[in-house]
């Protein structure tokens, strides 16, 4: 495995990866480095190529061009060896609804050629707390339990890399929090996790992030780096009757982004001086207050999304 200067070895190291579906260019020149033991967040709007990228990393899809390695194995030619060491959790629950919990785990263990299948499955059930329900059909589980079962089935063969595709979509906050505790435990044990998500709080729990839109990697780094990279200056507008102000604020010179946060509005812009001047002018005859705040990750992402949309339209 290649070792990046001063860091842990790179588990994922790909460069210039491309993928087309028909005449649609789904992933464009993707380059990605993920270090061992890292929790790497993968963000981007719907249809931006996240799932396709993850599928290429675990050998389900073959890239059209590009090169790179996953766990030190070539992503183009060694996909079958990669599959053995990767746990992939699909976006949609993809275990068998008409098999019981026990049967599902047993089947997956067989697929990976586990030696002591019964021991492995029993342990997984025990850790899940599902030993008493092993004969229940998987399809009858609630969303949160399905997600936990899916994660447990990905972990049966003790993979070194976990690829999780929007694992917490449609799961309640408590289950989500438990899930992330588990992810951090795994990461501490040296397992690398690449996880795609739409949730900001989840993004902030990742060690590093990548933002992809319309097949192109727009930004990557730690949350702070991504936010700093957008060079946004943000003002928070507070006061009564904020409804209907958005449109007017968006038209102000220097305002790149306006977002509502309940009782406040965030106005962001790259040209801080211009924005401050126009905001001061705009608010002079209104009973509102403005204050400078640090831009949030969400501000940065929405700005990224808008930027990529403009680019997409061209």
């Amino acid at each position: 495995m290649k070792i990046e200067k001063g860091g842990a070895p790179l588990v994922i190291d790909v460069a210039g990866i491309n993928k087309h579906f028909g005449d649609k260019h789904v992933v464009k020149d993707l380059s990605l480095q993920v270090r061992r033991g890292e929790i790497f967040g993968f963000l981007g709007p719907n249809g931006s190529g996240k799932t396709t990228s993850i599928r290429m990393l675990c050998g389900l899809l073959t890239p059209d061009s590009g090169s790179g390695s996953c766990l030190g194995l070539d992503v183009l030619t060694q996909s079958s060896q990669i599959k053995r060491q990767v746990g992939y959790m699909t976006q949609k629950f993809s275990l068998w609804d008409d098999l019981t919990i026990g049967e599902n785990l047993d089947f997956v263990a067989r697929m990976f050629g586990m030696k002591k299948r019964r021991v492995v499955v029993d342990r997984a059930l025990d850790e899940l707390g599902l030993t008493g329900r092993r004969d229940q059909l998987a399809g009858t589980l609630s969303g949160g339990w399905k997600q936990r079962l899916a994660l447990a089935s990905c972990l049966l063969h003790e993979p070194q890399l976990l690829l999780l595709d929007e694992p917490t979509a449609g799961v309640d906050p408590k289950a989500r929090r438990d899930f992330w505790e588990e992810i951090h435990r795994l990461s501490a044990a040296g397992i690398t996790v690449l996880v795609s998500t739409h949730y900001m709080d989840e993004a902030e729990r990742c060690h590093r992030l990548a933002y992809i839109a319309y097949g192109t990697l727009m930004a990557s780094g730690t949350a702070a780096e991504v936010v700093a990279g957008q060079r946004l200056q943000t003002w928070e507008i507070a006061g009564a009757d904020l409804q209907g102000l958005g449109q007017a604020l968006r038209a102000l010179p220097g305002a790149d982004l306006v977002a509502s946060f309940g009782a406040t509005l965030h106005v962001c812009g790259r040209d801080g001086a211009a924005l401050e001047a126009s905001l001061t002018d705009f608010l002079s005859d209104r009973p509102l207050t403005m204050s400078r705040v640090a831009p949030s990750l969400e501000d940065a992402f929405i700005d990224l999304m808008q930027g990529s949309q403009d680019q997409f339209k061209e």
């Binding site: 079958s80 599959k83 992939y88 699909t90 993809s94 275990l95 609804d97 997956v108 697929m111």
Partner: peptide, 14 residues
């Protein structure tokens, strides 16, 4: 249709 094929393909099964 159920999406389980993806899971099957993600295993080393040929």
């Amino acid at each position: 249709e159920r999406g389980t094929f993806e899971n099957l393909l993600a295993t080393p099964a040929t």
